[in-house]
Write a protein that binds this DNA or RNA. Structure first.
Lengths: 237, 237
DNA sequence: ACAAAAGTGTTCAGCCTACACCCATGG
DNA sequence: CCATGGGTGTAGGCTGAACACTTTTGT
C-alpha cells in the first residue's frame, strides 16, 4: 500500500484503535531469536491493522505472510494489551517530523490502540523477512538481547517467551521452530533452550517417541564424529 | 448512562468496533448456569464497550460489576471473535424499530464488531444480577439448555464451557463457583459436573488436600444423616 | 583404538488407580 | 443398629528421574 494513502486514509480502510502484533520466533545458533523491524532508531514488533472487510484471523495470516514469506505460518494467540494510555504519539512524531507528509496530531495513528498480540514459531532457515513501507530494516534479536523498543513491545516479547515455556509442556508445537525433518538431539537442544534448563536426554527421547506425534525416518548423513541420528517428522494423520 | 446518549453519542465515548462479552458462569442445583440478558425475544451475553479513556481490563471489571453486583469478580480471558461479517444489524433492527429513537443504518452499533470474550466464575448465591438500559430481563440458563441467542453468542458460551474443562485441570479456579467456605464433597460434585464424568472420591480428596491450596476449617453443621464434612477455604498466603 | 555422539536399559521412587475399609451421625 | 455420607488406607500399576551401558562413527 502507498505510504501517503496509509497515513491519510488508513482510518477508512482499517478498524480503528485496533492492531495486531506478532512475536515471530525462530531458533538459530542454539538461541531463540525474535524478528524485529526498525523505524527511526528504534525497534518494534512486526504488526499491522485489520481491514474493515477482513477477519481478525485473515489479518493475522496476511501480516505473518507479508513479513516472513512463509505460505502457511504457525501462530497462536498470546494476549490483549489494552492499557488506557496505549498510544504511539511520541514514536510516530520522532519518526515523521523529518518527512513532508501531512502528519497532524489528530492522525488516526496517534490515537489509542488496543493490540491483539500473537506469537508465531517459524523455521529460521525458511523465513525470508521483508521490510514494509514504514520500517527501514529488519533483524533477528536474541530474546535476552532485545534492543530499545516501542512502548510495551518488549513486554509483549517477554510475555511470549514465558507463554511458549508453558504451552510447549501441554502441546507439541516446538517442531515449528525446526526444519520439516529434524533429529531428536536437535529437538532436545531446542527444548533445553526454551526452558532454560537441562533435560535428561534419555527420558526426553523416550517421551517424545512415546507421544506418537513423530515418525522415524532414515538416519541423517553428516560428517561429524559419533553415531548418526535418526531423522523425524510430524505424522500427517 | 442515558439510552438516547448511548445510541447517538456512543461512538465518541467508546472505542468503536470493539466490544467485551462475558460468559458469567454459576453453579446451582448441581448444574452449571450461564447468566444471559434478554433484548426483544432473544437472549445475549452480558457485555459492553470500552470507554476511550479506560483500559480493557478496567472495562472488563466494570462490566462484570455492573451485571453481578460482586465487588471483586473472577474473570479470565477466553478468546477473540473477529469474523469479517460480525455485526448485529438484524438484531438491533428487530428490537429498535418499535422505538422512536433516531436509529439510522449508519449507527455505530450496526457496524462490524470484534469482541473480546471473557469468562467469569461466580458464586451463584452471592450474585445479584441486574438488567441494563437495553435489556428487559436476565436469567440463568443451564449450559445444555441455552435459548436462541444473538449471532455467535451461543458459540462463545460453548467455547467457555470447553475452556473451563481445560483450565481447571491446570490451575485451581473452581472454588470461585462455590461459597467462600465449602466442603470437599461439594467441590467433588462440582468437578464432576464440569468434566461431565465421575471422579474417584478418595483420590479427588487427597489430591485437593495435597495441593496445599486449601485450609481445613471446623466441620460443617447440618441436619442430614451421615458424617459431617470438614469445611475448607482457599489459603490466603 | 579412542573420543564423541546417539540410542537403549535398569533401577528406584513417587504418583495414580481402584477399591476397601473405617468413622460419624440421624432416624 | 443400620442406612447414609464422609474420611482414610492399601495393593498394584504406570510414569518419571537418574544414571549406566551399548552402539556407531570420524579421526
Amino acid at each position: 500500500m502507498d505510504f501517503r494513502k496509509f497515513i491519510e486514509q488508513g482510518e477508512k480502510l482499517f478498524l480503528p484503535n485496533l492492531s495486531v502484533d506478532m512475536v515471530i520466533i525462530g531458533f538459530h545458533e542454539e538461541k531463540l531469536k525474535c524478528l524485529l523491524l526498525q523505524i527511526g532508531d528504534r525497534w518494534l514488533l512486526p504488526g499491522g491493522y485489520i481491514f474493515r472487510s477482513e477477519s481478525v484471523e485473515a489479518a493475522t495470516v496476511r501480516i505473518l505472510q507479508e513479513r516472513t514469506g512463509l505460505p502457511d505460518p504457525h501462530f497462536k494467540f498470546l494476549s490483549v494489551f489494552g492499557g488506557e494510555d496505549r498510544n504511539f504519539t511520541e514514536e510516530w512524531q520522532q519518526f515523521l517530523e523529518k518527512d513532508d507528509i501531512n502528519f497532524t496530531e489528530d492522525c488516526w495513528l496517534n490515537d489509542r490502540f488496543v493490540t491483539l498480540a500473537y506469537y508465531s514459531l517459524v523455521d529460521f532457515e525458511k523465513t525470508k523477512p521483508m521490510v514494509g513501507n514504514l520500517d527501514s530494516a529488519f533483524a533477528w534479536f536474541g530474546l535476552d538481547e532485545l534492543p530499545d523498543m516501542w512502548m510495551d513491545h518488549k513486554k509483549i516479547v517477554l510475555t511470549a517467551k514465558n507463554r511458549l515455556k508453558e504451552d510447549m509442556q501441554q502441546e507439541h508445537l516446538t517442531y515449528n521452530l525446526l526444519p520439516k525433518e529434524f533429529t531428536m538431539p536437535q529437538l532436545h537442544q531446542l527444548h533445553q533452550t526454551i526452558l532454560e534448563e537441562t533435560l535428561d536426554r534419555s527420558r526426553f527421547q523416550k517421551k517424545m517417541i512415546a507421544s506418537g506425534v513423530f515418525e522415524r525416518l532414515p538416519k541423517l548423513q553428516k560428517d561429524s564424529p559419533g553415531r548418526k541420528p535418526y531423522q523425524y517428522r510430524v505424522k500427517k494423520a
